[in-house]
């Protein structure tokens, strides 16, 4: 199972990972349209910043995933290729997954009242955050 890792030492806090994640999960996948004319999805990547330190954090797609084990609806599930996704049709926004994720990698989508997280860009060989990180701070290995 390949995962996204971050090299904190070279993360420059530009947040392009978030921007490309939003575009990838938008309706049109056109960066200008996605930002200007469409409802903006929450990015699945979360950038933490404090002073000069910054890093991007994505779901680890744990082997022993507490979010999947704890999900009260079955929305949080592991696909056959190992990635964990949240089926927002089934999610009711109880935030149990947020309570158990030891990385704090799941977000509350307050508009849609569902959990939002990284899906490793279904259909892409390399997640777009990794592909577009200008400083190669993200790796997919």
């Amino acid at each position: 199972m390949r995962r996204i890792y971050v090299k904190e030492d070279v993360c420059i806090g530009c947040r392009l990972c978030e921007i490309y994640c939003i575009v990838q999960h938008s309706k049109s996948k056109n960066i200008i349209k996605a930002f200007r004319n469409e409802p903006r999805p929450l990015p699945g990547v979360l950038v933490e910043e404090k002073g000069p330190i910054s890093f991007a954090l994505q779901c680890r797609h744990c082997d022993d995933a507490p979010c999947v084990e704890s999900c009260i609806t079955g929305a949080m599930q592991r696909l056959e290729d190992g990635r964990i996704i949240c089926d927002i049709e089934r999610c009711v926004g109880c935030w149990t997954c947020i309570m158990v994720c030891p990385y704090g990698a799941i977000r509350r989508d307050q508009n849609r009242k569902v959990a939002s997280k990284c899906d490793l860009c279904i259909g892409e060989d390399i997640p777009v955050c990794v592909k577009n990180c200008p400083n190669e701070a993200l790796t997919y290995e």
Partner: peptide, 13 residues
């Protein structure tokens, strides 16, 4: 503000 509570739960575990 509950967003990163999971990190705390992880540390407790």
């Amino acid at each position: 503000n509950i967003d990163r509570a999971g990190i705390v739960a992880g540390m407790m575990k």
